[in-house]
Design a protein around this nucleic acid. Structure first.
Lengths: 254, 254
DNA sequence: ATAAGCGTTCAGTATGAGCGAACGGCCGTC
DNA sequence: GACGGCCGTTCGCTCATACTGAACGCTTAT
């Protein structure tokens, strides 16, 4: 499957280790980052000064930060996606219509990546930043994708990443997950009951192409105290499934 | 100024050369990218397989593409900007109010980087993607920043990047630019008359912090045939300056 | 004045980046 | 159905270079 590189470029790995460190520390000096990564500071300095010279990183008052130039890669990659352009307006509309947070997710390397977030003034704020990666088994968005993925792909993904327990509610048993996926296929939508974030519930539906391939999933999420009763079991699911449906239709006719 | 790295990491440079190649070609195979970059294919293969293993790049059917994971870096960098969060809603409002395209730009390494684009259904579509870098002298957004930057900084930037002619209308003379910057300071807003993109006009105003530092600039742009008369010399400038002003006020009280 | 902490420089050494050539699988073609 | 070309991948050699600890100079705090 994922053929491990035989001639890996160590410096490429280190480059991103450095960038990740900068992200985690939210900007740092040479010494600070060196201790954080447990790497000699002369080494860190080499990478940082190279990255700064190439304009991927900004140095301000001795503090190095990730440059906004990276937006270019992100926007490029996103626009190259099958769903983004068509789904975006619908995801925004979904947030407005329901007065909650809506999201668009796609699968990449067996994990989920948030592509877009629809916000509404009435929606509670959660820190799901675009580009954030999540496990597929612990979110409604991920589970609705898994439900539509071919069986062997699902197995490969679970083998690779396992079923880490994100919250006490996370499904950590493969058989239990398989049963849930079957239920999702019958019902048409997936439910996340505080399996990824405590106090947060979520309803999601997959986006499937005309040829039967899963392209991603949409969701609406909100606090447990608001997401209950028929609102949670009927109103929201209906809106989400309709949105997914509209996206699928727009995709086939364009 | 920009202290050149004494111990540059060549592999870091190569890594981004490879990624840039992937972006330009909009996804490519090993051989295709190798010819494009004029680098041995075994070398390209090393980098691509490493990047794929580290999940920065996606391999699909023998075609390598930049992964959406990069959105994470972009969103991170943007959010830790001084202006983004405060300016975003105002930039969106500006697009709606005027029915045109609005933009938010900041300076980085002497060039401009688009942080956000406000769209309106009535607006014409231009391919200014978020993260795109532009010269400061050839755009209204850039010029309004230059107008508020300290003189020596402006000199350093012009020394570094020169004044490349982007379109026939681009200002390529330093004295002429200096005069225009003075005019911008008096008037309070900058004008771009097809200096960056042919057929496109643009009005921009700088966003200045309470301490007098330029944090970025906002703009509204539209086609030449619509941007003329008092609409171009009064209506639009007023809206843009008001938006910049609101952003400045919101920044000081938060 | 002094010391501590920082970013930066330096030069030596082990390593791994870079490379050409060869391999093997997957097409389309004759 | 055998052949030839194309592509991704592997391999092992060689020299460039990533990596390091120690030293330098600068700023800031004491």
């Amino acid at each position: 499957m994922a053929g491990t590189a035989r001639n890996p470029v160590k410096s490429t790995r280190t480059t991103f280790t450095v960038l990740d460190g900068l992200k985690e520390l939210d900007g740092a000096g040479v010494t600070e980052l060196a201790t954080h990564l447990d790497v000699p500071k002369s080494t860190v300095h080499s990478y940082l000064s190279t990255l700064e010279e190439e304009e991927w990183v900004v140095k301000d008052d001795g503090v190095y930060r990730i440059g906004v130039r990276f937006l270019e890669y992100g926007a490029h990659a996103r626009s190259r996606t099958d769903v983004y352009t068509t789904a975006k307006p619908e995801v925004d509309r979904l947030a407005e219509e329901t007065g909650n947070l809506s999201n668009l997710l796609i699968e990449e390397h067996g994990r989920g990546v948030y592509l877009h977030r629809g916000e509404d003034t009435r929606a509670i704020q959660v820190n799901t930043r675009v580009g954030t990666r999540v496990y597929l088994h612990s979110t409604a968005l991920g589970k609705s994708i898994l439900a539509k993925l071919p069986e062997p792909r699902v197995e490969a993904i679970l083998d690779r990443h396992g079923l880490p327990e994100v919250t006490p509610n996370t499904i950590t048993d493969r058989a239990e997950l398989a049963a849930e996926l079957e239920e999702i296929r019958e019902r048409g939508y997936a439910v996340d009951d505080e399996e990824q974030v405590q106090g947060l519930r979520c309803i999601s539906a997959p986006i499937v192409s005309a040829s039967g391939r899963v392209l991603g999933s949409v969701s609406v999420s909100g606090p447990t105290h608001r997401f209950k009763g028929t609102y949670f079991t009927e109103t929201i699911p209906d809106s989400v499934m309709e949105a997914a449906n509209v996206i699928e239709l727009n995709l086939t006719y364009s």
